[in-house]
Computed example of a mutant assay.
Amino acid sequence: MKEKLTISEMARLRGLTPETLRHYDRIGLFKPHHVDIDSGYRYYSIFQYEVLGTIKELREIGMSTEEIKNYFNERNVSNSLSILERKHIDLIDRINELNEIEKSIQEKISWMREISKSKELMEVSVRELPIRSLIVHHDKVQTNLELCYGVIELENKLNEKAPIVGTNRLGVLIDKADLDNHKYNSSCRPFILERIKKKVKEHKLITIPHGKYVCIRYSGELWDRARCLEKAMHYIKENHFEIIGYTLQIAQIDISVTDVIDELVFELQIPIKHS
């Protein structure tokens, strides 16, 4: 056993790299006990083991080097407890954030597995859908350029982590009057489905009621909906239904997960009642 250790020996004892110790020296966090004037070699004392061990543990719990410097500036029970309590709060916040991200990823995986198995394109069905809340853009859009700006504005209203990629939350509202007048490619209002209550920044929500909807899916881009709507409208007329509100066009598979146009899928949901 010896008191004086080379940089490699000290690093090895604490499971660190020599470069880490050089970095700590450069930023003034952990200085060698002695530096040889002629060779420039750093030497450490075994009695510095506690300081380096504490630094290592504080880094493991997520403290920055600046926070660790502050920890050592006036180290006593009261200050150490206060610093650890603040770090504990930070860690709880981070854990909650990671839990939210994990839940979001799990939902994305489940949805993408479900939709990738579905082959029901251009087939009309009537489904009962639940009440939903939409974050809706204040202006209508008619071009991809306008759509891009509208979606960005909506996404900025969300206070969530990874809210859009691989989900079926993004879409547009089509006015009832446009369908009644067979204006299938008219302007529409972008929206995002609200997923988590109180996670929207100061924005009025639109409620879409529970009810029956004529639904049909197609592959292609947002503006390729005319043929699909024509088929849905024929079905509505043939079965003596009446449109009673906004039509929702929701991206099922969008450009966030594929660059292949033929893999893009949209679903149209038209609220109806018997006329």
Rank of each mutant, 00 (worst) to 15 (best):
G171W: 00
V172D: 00
V172W: 00
I174V: 13
D175V: 05
D175L: 12
K176V: 10
K176M: 12
A177H: 14
D178P: 08
L179P: 01
D180I: 12
N181E: 14
H182N: 07
K183M: 15
K183F: 13
K183C: 08
Y184K: 07
Y184E: 05
Y184M: 10
N185D: 13
N185V: 09
S187Q: 11
S187K: 09
C188E: 02
P190C: 01
P190M: 01
F191H: 02
F191D: 00
F191Y: 10
I192N: 00
I192D: 00
I192R: 00
I192W: 01
L193D: 06
E194F: 00
E194P: 01
R195E: 15
R195T: 14
K197H: 11
K198Y: 10
K198Q: 09
K198W: 05
V200K: 04
K201Q: 05
K201N: 12
H203A: 10
H203W: 12
H203F: 08
H203I: 13
K204M: 04
I206K: 15
T207Q: 15
I208N: 01
P209D: 12
G211N: 10
G211C: 14
K212Y: 09
K212S: 04
K212A: 05
Y213P: 00
Y213H: 09
C215F: 08
C215S: 15
R217N: 11
Y218G: 03
Y218S: 02
G220V: 07
G220M: 11
G220D: 06
L222R: 02
D224N: 14
R225N: 13
A226C: 08
A226I: 10
R227G: 11
R227K: 13
C228N: 12
L229W: 02
L229M: 04
K231C: 07
H234Y: 15
H234I: 10
Y235D: 01
Y235S: 02
I236W: 02
K237Q: 12
K237R: 15
E238Y: 07
E238N: 04
N239A: 04
H240D: 15
E242A: 09
I243T: 06
I243C: 02
I244C: 08
I244N: 04
I244G: 03
I244A: 04
